[in-house]
Amino acid sequence: MNSIVARLIALAGVMIAITMAVGLIAYYGAAYFHLQVMMKHMPPEARQELAGLIAHGQQASPRYFALFERYGSGALDISDAGFILAIGITSIVAGGTVAVLLARRISQPIIAVAEAAAAVAAGDRSVRVAKGRVSGEVGTLIDSFNRMASDIEAYERERTVFTAGVTHELRTPLTILKGRLHGIADGMVPASAAEADRLLRQVEHLGRIVEDLKTLAHADAGELALDRRNLMVDDVLRVCVTDLRGSAVAAEVEFAEHYAGGKVHGDAVRLSQIFLNLLTNAIKHAPVGSRIQVSSRTDGHRAIIEVIDAGGGFAPQDAQRLFMPFWRSRADKVAGRPGSGLGLALAEKLAEAHGGRIVASNRQDRSGAIFRVELPLAQA
Rank of each mutant, 00 (worst) to 15 (best):
A225C: 03
S144H: 09
A21G: 11
L67W: 06
Y32I: 13
A369M: 07
R128K: 12
D220Q: 11
L344M: 15
L342M: 14
P316H: 09
A260H: 11
I18S: 05
I152W: 08
S3R: 15
M42V: 05
V113C: 03
N362D: 07
Q317L: 11
E153V: 07
I370F: 11
G82W: 10
D197I: 10
I142Q: 02
R63F: 03
G132N: 08
V134Q: 04
R328N: 04
G23Q: 03
P173I: 10
T97V: 14
L276A: 08
H182P: 00
R363N: 11
G289P: 06
G136K: 02
G123C: 04
A6N: 09
V129N: 00
A86F: 11
V359T: 12
I304H: 04
A21K: 04
I184N: 01
G95E: 14
A248M: 00
F68A: 02
G139K: 00
D309L: 10
K284L: 11
R7Y: 00
F68I: 14
A221C: 02
D220C: 01
R291K: 13
Q293C: 06
V373D: 01
R105F: 01
I87Q: 03
E306Y: 06
Y155K: 13
A378C: 04
K214P: 00
R105L: 09
D186V: 09
L278K: 08
R201V: 09
A360N: 05
R229C: 02
P287A: 08
V161C: 02
I370D: 00
A345C: 07
S367M: 09
Y64W: 12
E137A: 11
A282Q: 07
A112R: 12
Q48P: 00
F326W: 05
V37G: 02
V93S: 01
I308F: 00
V189T: 15
I87R: 13
F323Y: 05
A12R: 05
H354L: 04
V138D: 04
P62H: 03
